[in-house]
C-alpha cells in the first residue's frame, strides 16, 4: 500500500484514470470482419449505432483473420465470410459455441455489363478458399459450356473488380457488391445482372462468433443481437444478402 504513495505510480494511475474516463464513456469492441462485409457492417451501424459501444472494425480475408485469432489477436467478435472458420475456432476452443450465429447468406449473381462479348473468360472467386468461389464453381460447372476459362479473384470482391474494370466480360459476383456499386455511382451497368436461383448452388453461409478470450461479453452479445434483429436482417436483404429464416426452399 505504501507503493501507492510513490509519486510516479501515482501519476501513472492518474493518467490511466484519465484515459478510461474518456469523454463518451463508451466501450470499445474489436470486430474482425471478412472484407466483403466491412462496408455493409459500417452502413448498418451508421444507420443504427449501438449506444455505449464503439465498434472498431478490422477487415481482412477470413483466412487471415482466422490465423490471427488463433495466434492471439485481441478480437472480441469474428464475422467470417463462411461457416467453416467459425466452426473451426469453436472446435479448437477459441470461440464460444453458444454465440454462433448465421448473420447472412451470400447471394450470387451472373453479371455481364456489356452486351458484346469481351472474351471467353469467367471471373469467379477462388473456390479453394472462398465459399462464394465454391458456390460459383458449382453453378458454372453445371450451367456453362466446357471448357470454362476461369479467372480467379482472391475473393468475391476481387472477382467483381475484374468484371468492373472491363478485363473480363462475365463474372459470378456477390449481389451485395452490385447493389453497393449502384448506390454509389448510379451507373446502369451495375443493373445488368441476373440473380441466380438459390437452389442451384450450395448455400454461402456467413457465420459470426464471439471469441472466448474477450473481456467484453456484454457488448459482444449486444452486437450479435443487433445483427440478428429483425430490422437489421431486413436491411441485409436490401443490401443484397439473403437471411436464414426466410430461406424456405432449402
Amino acid at each position: 500500500m505504501s507503493k501507492l504513495y510513490n509519486t510516479w505510480l501515482g501519476y501513472f494511475l492518474c493518467v490511466i484514470c484519465m484515459f478510461s474516463c474518456s469523454v463518451n464513456a463508451k466501450e470499445t469492441l474489436q470486430v474482425a470482419v471478412a472484407s466483403n462485409f466491412k462496408t455493409v457492417l459500417q452502413t448498418l451501424l451508421k444507420k443504427s449505432p449501438l449506444p455505449n459501444i464503439d465498434v472498431k472494425i478490422s477487415a481482412a480475408s477470413s483466412g487471415v483473420l482466422y490465423s490471427q485469432i488463433v495466434h492471439g489477436a485481441p478480437f472480441d467478435v469474428f464475422l467470417s465470410a463462411d461457416d467453416f472458420r467459425p466452426k473451426s475456432l469453436i472446435k479448437e476452443g477459441y470461440a464460444e459455441q453458444s454465440s454462433l450465429i448465421t448473420y447472412a447468406l451470400g447471394e450470387l449473381a451472373l453479371w455481364q455489363p456489356k452486351a458484346e462479348k469481351v472474351n471467353d473468360k469467367v471471373a469467379i472467386a477462388n473456390p479453394r478458399f472462398s465459399p462464394y468461389g465454391r458456390a460459383s464453381e458449382h453453378y458454372a460447372s453445371n450451367h456453362f459450356k466446357k471448357p470454362i476459362n476461369y479467372v480467379y479473384g482472391n475473393n468475391i470482391t476481387h472477382a467483381f473488380q475484374f468484371v468492373q474494370s472491363g478485363n473480363v466480360g462475365v463474372g459470378l459476383v456477390a449481389v451485395s457488391s452490385l447493389k453497393a456499386a449502384y448506390s454509389n455511382t448510379q451507373d446502369q451497368k451495375y443493373l445488368e445482372y441476373t440473380v441466380l436461383p438459390t437452389n442451384q448452388y450450395p448455400d454461402i453461409i456467413q457465420q459470426g462468433v464471439i471469441i472466448s478470450s474477450t473481456k467484453k461479453h456484454a457488448s459482444a452479445k449486444q452486437l450479435m443481437q443487433f445483427l440478428m434483429a429483425e430490422a437489421t436482417q431486413q436491411q441485409l436483404i436490401e443490401l443484397g444478402y439473403r437471411i436464414k429464416d426466410n430461406n424456405a426452399s432449402k
Binding site: 483466412g63 482466422y66 482472391n154
Partner: peptide, 26 residues
C-alpha cells in the same frame, strides 16, 4: 500479381500466389 494475375496456373500463378492460396485454404 495478385491484383492483375487472375491466379491462372502456368500463366500468372507465381509462387507467392500459390503460397497465399495454401495459407488461405489452411
Amino acid at each position: 500479381v495478385l491484383m492483375i494475375g487472375g491466379n491462372i496456373q502456368g500463366q500468372t500463378q507465381v509462387v507467392s500466389i500459390a503460397l497465399y492460396d495454401h495459407v488461405e485454404s489452411l
